[in-house]
Amino acid sequence: MKMRIYQAALLLAIFGAWYVLTETEILAPFFFGKPLLVLEKTWEWFASGKIYSHLGITLIETVLAFAVGTILGLLVGLWLALSPTASALLDPYIKAANSMPRVILAPIFAVWFGLGIWSKVALGVTLVFFIVFFNVYQGVKEVSPVVLANARMLGATSRDLLRTVYLPSATSWVFSSLHTAVGMAFVGAVVGEYLGSAAGVGYLILQAEAVFDINTVFAGILVLTAFALVLDGIVSFAEKRLLVWRPAAGETEPL
């Protein structure tokens, strides 16, 4: 709790320093904006309701990219981890696809899927997929052989093993990757918008930048950051609810 107060104080200090430095023109306001104008712009967006449709678009893109990427990553991860032939065959392609900087696919997706939300979703999916995929793969490979042998001795069929051993084990690994994954879905959406779109917060930033309206750019960044924090919080909440079985460090309760 005390930490929260310090954290808030630090935030205020940063805004204070920003304010002082730009008011005294030590930092040029043309390039660095002015915090009060940034806040005013943000306020105006929400007060006029102009931001909601853009935020909604970005949200839909992020959630779709996140959901599709996670489900694909989970399925392909399970499949490859449980099928040695398939994983041996596809191994070099997966490595190649993963090491490629996928942002360069954005123009191609724009051509394939148009300037609407689907090109952004596609970009987000390529980013999310690999994170989840590698974690699921790892999760399945790291299942304790003893737990596995035990389940088999208790009469588990391969479907039972998938349901009661591989999937739960992979889930815990997936969750540790979801924080990164949700961030990546968001990056995919915003970068996609920034590279060509007619709506979304990335589009607002792009427009403002075109007319050197630095305060609006910062306002966009502010909104995006807050938004990312909310998404991350939702993942943490789900993680806490679903992974109760995982030991937390020093789990004691004061009397």
């Binding site: 009661t164 051993v165 079985w245």
Partner: peptide, 21 residues
């Protein structure tokens, strides 16, 4: 070695074999 499924409660661990069956 420990062979219980860490993601299941004690009750579910004991019941799991019957459920497989």
């Amino acid at each position: 070695a420990d062979a219980l499924m860490p993601w299941m409660s004690a009750l579910d661990n004991v019941a799991v074999g019957l459920i497989y069956r």
